[in-house]
Design a protein around this nucleic acid. Structure first.
Length: 395
DNA sequence: TCTGGGGTCCTAGGACCC
DNA sequence: TCTGGGGTCCTAGGACCC
């Protein structure tokens, strides 16, 4: 790209000031508040739920170690000490146990993480109210309307979070979400990174393409096959080549992000699109021989989804199921009702119809139930939407 | 010793309608 | 026998994210 073209790109829109705030090793850090004696040790969160620490005869807590674990499950978070052994989130627990057998293993406690999540978001909102939720442990913040100098503002937000929760976070501040997100990762943990468009050649282009939010393992591999490994190489790539391998719209997006271009707004009021529950069985289940158990699990999932909908005040019209077979092949089916519902029985009947359309020839590993095409129940009532009534039992 | 659970967004074909 | 283009909804799958 020629320099005038590049300059034009930089000046093409009004400068925004957007922060991406990412809590450091969030789940693990919350656990360390509860078990401060583990600070400084390799600790991982994950696996199944039976690994609560026990209090020994001497009154001291006894923790499970990774080497004691057998079975399914993945690591959701690892402390930086555990990451030093090569353990990372998404990794199978058994694989992690090979890398760091002495690391402490703790079960996930989502209720606790959600409490801390609400707390840190409330703290930020008191300083900068324009917040987009993007996960339990991260947010985007639109700082545009605040007068304060950028680095002071970042430090003030970080300090307020630390005072209120005892937790640290990393912050990236940039003219758009793409760069803010990359920035928050550049100085982890407990860091602040401020980027402007003029930092792109020096600080963004040397990074590997997978640092871009939206370029995952598949795209990284395809790009590598074309000899493209860094964002600089992506920026220099022939647009025609990219288009022939990735299609027109993804190729155009790749080019934009390689130049640091991203016009997405900070979305401060998003509604959920779907609500689901799924479970991976402790052993693969046979569709016929384990039919009773499967049926029990299936009913429970439908009831949980219905309860989630009701608690969050949503009704949905599209009901879906997800099956994963022993070979990890995954299929989905869904069905659109004529009316919205949050009723467990209605959901179960529709989901049952979906299941009937899947040939069950292999053992099952996972079963899930999903409701989408959601509507806020209160809105629906005001606007007179039809809501599916419970049918008589004999129907 | 494989690979959790909760999501979002995109694509693509077919039905159906104008 | 062959002949449009566009829009929307439904469904299935897949990539990606935390």
């Amino acid at each position: 790209m020629s320099s005038p073209e590049y300059n034009a790109m930089q000046q093409s829109s009004v400068q925004r000031r957007i922060a991406h705030l990412d809590m450091d090793a969030f789940y693990a850090s919350v656990e360390l508040l509860r078990y401060p004696e583990l600070r400084g040790q390799p600790v991982v969160i994950g696996g199944r739920s039976e690994h609560q620490p026990i209090v020994g005869a001497n009154g001291r807590r006894q923790f499970y170690r990774l080497r004691d674990y057998a079975g399914r499950g993945v690591i959701t978070t690892a402390t930086y000490e555990a990451r030093a052994f090569g353990v990372s989130s998404g990794m199978g627990v058994m694989r992690a146990a090979q890398l760091a057998p002495d690391a402490v293993l703790l079960p996930v406690d989502f209720d606790a993480y959600r409490r801390y999540s609400r707390q840190f978001k409330a703290v930020v909102a008191a300083i900068a109210p324009q917040i987009e939720n993007t996960g339990i442990d991260e947010i985007y913040i639109d700082l545009g309307s605040l007068p304060e100098e950028t680095s002071l503002l970042a430090q003030r937000i970080k300090q307020a979070i630390r005072d209120a929760t005892g937790l640290t976070c990393s912050v990236g501040i940039a003219p758009n979400k793409l760069l803010a997100k990359i920035g928050s990762d550049l100085n982890k943990p407990d860091g602040v990174t401020i980027l402007s468009m003029s930092d792109i050649p020096g600080r963004i282009w040397p990074l590997p393409v997978q640092k871009i939010n939206g370029i995952g393992p598949k795209a990284t591999k395809k790009l590598a096959a074309l000899g493209i490994r860094t964002i600089a190489e992506l920026a220099q790539a022939d647009p025609g080549l990219l288009q022939s391998h990735f299609g027109r719209s993804y190729a155009a997006w790749l080019r934009d992000v390689s130049l640091g271009i991203d016009h997405r707004p900070v979305d401060t009021c998003s509604e959920p699109k779907s609500i689901s529950r799924e479970t991976t069985f402790e052993r693969d289940l046979h569709p016929r021989l384990d039919r009773a158990l499967l049926s029990e699990i299936f009913t429970a999932l439908c009831e949980q989804v219905a309860a989630d909908l009701q608690r969050k005040n949503y009704i949905g019209r599209r009901i879906g199921v997800k099956l994963r077979f022993e070979d990890f092949h995954t299929v989905t089916r869904d069905f659109t009702l004529t009316m919205h519902t949050a009723d467990a029985g209605q959901i179960r009947r529709a989901a049952r119809e979906c299941l009937r359309r899947i040939p069950l020839t292999k053992k099952l590993r996972l079963l899930g139930v999903r409701v989408s095409s959601l509507l806020l129940a209160s809105t629906a009532a005001e606007e007179g939407h039809a809501i599916q009534q419970e049918l008589p039992l004999f129907f």
